[in-house]
Design a protein around this nucleic acid. Sequence first.
DNA 1: CAGTGAGCGAGCTTCCGCTTGACTT
Length: 567
Amino acid sequence: MKNLVIVESPAKAKTIEGYLGESYNVIASYGHVRDLENKTGSVLPGKWSEIKWAISERGKTQLNQISTLAKESGRLILATDPDREGEAIAWHICELLKKEGILDSLEVCRAVFNSITRSAVAEAMENTREINKEKVQAYLARRVLDYVVGFNISPLLWRRLPGAKSAGRVQSVALKLICEREDKRDIFEPQEYWSIEAAFIKEEKKIKAKINSLDGTKLKKFDIKREKEAEIIIERIKKSSFSISEVNKKPIKRNPRPPFITSTLQQEAARKLRFSADRTMQVAQSLYEKACITYMRTDSPVISNEGISLIRDVIVRKFNDKYLYKDPLGRIYKSKSKQAQEAHEAIRPTDVNKYPDENSLSGDEKELYALIWNRAVSSQMASADLTQTEIIIPSQDKNIIFKATGSQIVFKGFLEVYEEGNDTEEESEETRLPTNINVNDELQIETLFPEQHFTKPPARYTEASLIRDLEEKGIGRPSTYASIMKSIKRREYASLENKQFLPANRGRVVVSFLDNYFAEYFKYEFTAEMEESLDLIARGDLIWTSLLDKFWTGFEPNIGNVEGLSN
DNA sequence: CAGTGAGCGAGCTTCCGCTTGACTT
């Protein structure tokens, strides 16, 4: 009798079938096979466990295949992803097969693995367990809560705010970030300030320095407010003579960034390739299907030991030992987010020996692959060594002090391969400094630039920065970031102008409506607090229906308040 | 008598998260 293995993704199914051999059939579920029926009344308040489910079209075909093969199998192994949704998918399939009476003659178990390597899969098949009921209940609570919020508030919007289409735990908070940023911009008043920079010169050697302190007090960036003040200082500078009092050098290290997860890939592809989140995910999907990269929807920066050692081999071959991070176990990265579920590896090339410039990829795929390759390889390389130099240039009476800073790369290390992009176009503070400059050298002023500036309002969100902030707050999941962006645009709550989100009036009205009547449910901490309760459920310390009862008790009166309003 | 406009009723929309794939930029 054969074993039947269920995973979520067809590409994964193919790979695993290759690992497991003749006695296994592997079938993909294509994600969830059933979901709440897409209409009102699928769950009724208080009767939380009487849920009306509907099987998706895709689900039907996959379930048919599964039950056909299950009849000729001795063991069913549910190897969906090792996270909450994966546990739920396994449970749904199990429930549906039970209904068909197929499970009577079949042993059912659950297997999990975090990386798709031969050894990890083999080990998982040996160490199976039962479906984790508590985890499934945490899923049920999450699923029902989202439904209740969305399907109660959206109809209120239809009636109250013409043109408004939808509200939800995730999309509305994303919209709120956009709108609050715009509010800050609206009330922002630019402040004038002046900078004073001098180019000193000594025998052809030029040093650009900024004024650092005046009459014994340190000058901060915005301290010179008016042209008059700047002029007075300039006059004093012109009357003074300057020499070097200190040259301070100190070694600094720069470390590589962790390998990509979904959010960082989307951000970096936006910065370096100008891709939208959606485009990034489509290109990544196709690289994944071609088995070029590991799974692209992940919140874990961890690379399997196998992956790390392949990368280390490449670093030695392409560069040399000096470029390798010295610990043989490699650099180990940890997830920053408490909400991370770490079901998959980081995003990396499956075969790092396939160099970005030596493969058959082209266009978007080639570019994105190169980005992923470089980031993954650099994450296991040695740090860069730099020397940071600081030159202190006081006037003779020491009342005016200039300071120049610069850094020089001594050893490039990972920078040979990869450097993260910048969000802002602000010029770097550091300039090149000449070598062989000495204390007591006297300097001439070549040029003196007073420059007028104005403080800038906070920048509007881009897709990349919005995803970064959502992730930081634990809102949304790797599989949904791109679709959150889409739905805000489709609802015409905000539009992208020059790749930046500009809220529409409609969007701002929705946000203030929600803040008025449902503030508790759209504050930034709501999701994190919900997740804490879900953790309690998953640990067996809280009953899932009590979470919903408690939620409903607080939520329901707010609906009444809106209903009771007169027009 | 023809054209206009107010008023009414019916029917529709919606969440988040897991997968692709068909379609358009």
